[in-house]
Design a protein around this nucleic acid. Sequence first.
DNA 1: TTGTAAGCGTTATCAA
DNA 2: TTGATAACGCTTACAA
Lengths: 340, 340
Amino acid sequence: MNIKDVARIAGVGISTVSRVINNTGIVSKATRDKVLSVVEQYNYVPNNNARNLKATQSRNIALMVKGITNPFFSNMIKEIERQVDLRGYPFMIYHVEDGTNEINAAIQLVQEKNLCGIIFMGGTYDHSEEKFRRLNIPCVLTTITAQEVDPSIFSSVIIDDLKEAYKATKYLISLGHTAIAFMAKSPFLNETTGNRRFLGYIKALEESSIPYDPQLVEDCEYSASSGFSATRRLLNKGRGVTALFAAADTIAIGAAKAVLTAGLSIPDDISIIGFDGIEMAEYYHPSLDTISQPANEIALSSVSLLFDLITGQSVNQHIVFDAVLIKRGSCKNPGMKRVF
Amino acid sequence: MNIKDVARIAGVGISTVSRVINNTGIVSKATRDKVLSVVEQYNYVPNNNARNLKATQSRNIALMVKGITNPFFSNMIKEIERQVDLRGYPFMIYHVEDGTNEINAAIQLVQEKNLCGIIFMGGTYDHSEEKFRRLNIPCVLTTITAQEVDPSIFSSVIIDDLKEAYKATKYLISLGHTAIAFMAKSPFLNETTGNRRFLGYIKALEESSIPYDPQLVEDCEYSASSGFSATRRLLNKGRGVTALFAAADTIAIGAAKAVLTAGLSIPDDISIIGFDGIEMAEYYHPSLDTISQPANEIALSSVSLLFDLITGQSVNQHIVFDAVLIKRGSCKNPGMKRVF
DNA sequence: TTGTAAGCGTTATCAA
DNA sequence: TTGATAACGCTTACAA
């Protein structure tokens, strides 16, 4: 079933069918009805490939997600999809494997699928300007940004990872902790989210003249199991840790399990604070403190920035949201020092 | 940059370029190298729209997910993507809003994007045969099936929800529980996963001559917050519940939180068992018993069935995996009856 | 071994 | 208000 068939059956010309379908140009009511009834009856759906081929510029929008298993992203994905849908643009989600370069993947995609806009979620900050230029379509970075790239060629919606991590660490310090462990993915790899949060942690320590102990930093994946093993390793080192700052709630949950399994109490023996603000951290027992990102606002703004760009209503912008320190009782002042 | 440009710059014909790109037909080494160097230098990427348009049948594969926020799906999505990628087929993920019909959405998609295969994940069992016929491409249902449809026109990879729920309930009964609550999404709506699991619950009760009390069944979303409220409602009813069977781990986690928040102990006061086998249930404290689905095998089989269909290597099949009852200590024999 | 040319299903231009 | 018709970028006979 193609436009030709519809035209033939309806007894009209091809372009008339096209005009009816796209609501473009003037068509008499009689002709329009005739065409529509055929379309209806035969379940005709225009072929997008042909459309895009013709159109040079399509309306396809893609979301490239790095780390789709991170529950923090799930709700954002859903909201982004909803928002794009609302505006009537075709939308697709692409998952990028850890270790593949999302921009490279995107460059392929833009040409292959004829995208008119793209949102990147997750990943690193270390993209080259040349790649961005080659992308050459409106582009919003969500939860990440690009340090080395001319800010006028992309938009971004983020929180200030460094500042928020600083806030979390400061909070622990203000409670009286000095032996504070830090867990994140790739904390020592420049321009990653983990690194930004690590820098915030370091800054807070320095400001309070607490010497930085590299033994207290663990590199781990964004998962409970990884947080669990990392915390085990930490506890086994016997550095008298009294507080754990996990740069993701998933890690914090694994960490909490390791602490509880070791027969220690949260927060009496060890305080824990996470990052992100996922539901599970709230429903953990004990509920875990966290730095909660405004996921919904981030999603909404990302889409709205993208459409401003697509419709040419504004130039590239960079929005930085504040995250909120949520206290649920998993942190308190350190009790007696213990030796692990 | 299109194939014409490449041909012109390389000083060859269009079809030669096509032959080089697609590794089809015989091309002399010299010509091939010349073409490839131009492709390389100008970053030429063939336009997929044109390809698909020509091809009638493309290689695009889509995954339609209903309930992308369910962490049980996350790893499966990742694995499915990986498997499709491995086979070198373009892959895209589509999220279907709760409340929209995924088959309708798919019918659109098949024509628009020229799909050659589709996997459905999540959703309900109640699809009409007519819709499936209209789909008219290889199609695998994952974690769901279609009761009313000729099984020779689709494949499926599932667990036996009824049997596994029966297993869970039986387990609780074998421990001595009789006041067993059940929580699921839409337990009373025919042909949903929640309903299948509900029927297993009922079957186990009947078999043990435990009268069914509708007050002990709660309808809730697949989320911790929803499980939390549902459990609150349950406890407030004062029916002396001693065990909770949550038809999803996310629900079980919310339920556990409600129990613990009420000052009760798991499993001393209340036993809890979940369903699915997500990581968080293991790292909850206490770790939660569950019926664990072989998510990875399900993902692998789904893709492999789909490709068998696409390549015509086999006809539609229906695979039923066994799930495993994992005991982590959140269930024990009921202690003294309490009145809540 | 290579090139020419005819579509694939649309949209848009132009003439009727 | 309509209907031919020329692209869009590609693949694939078929010819050379």
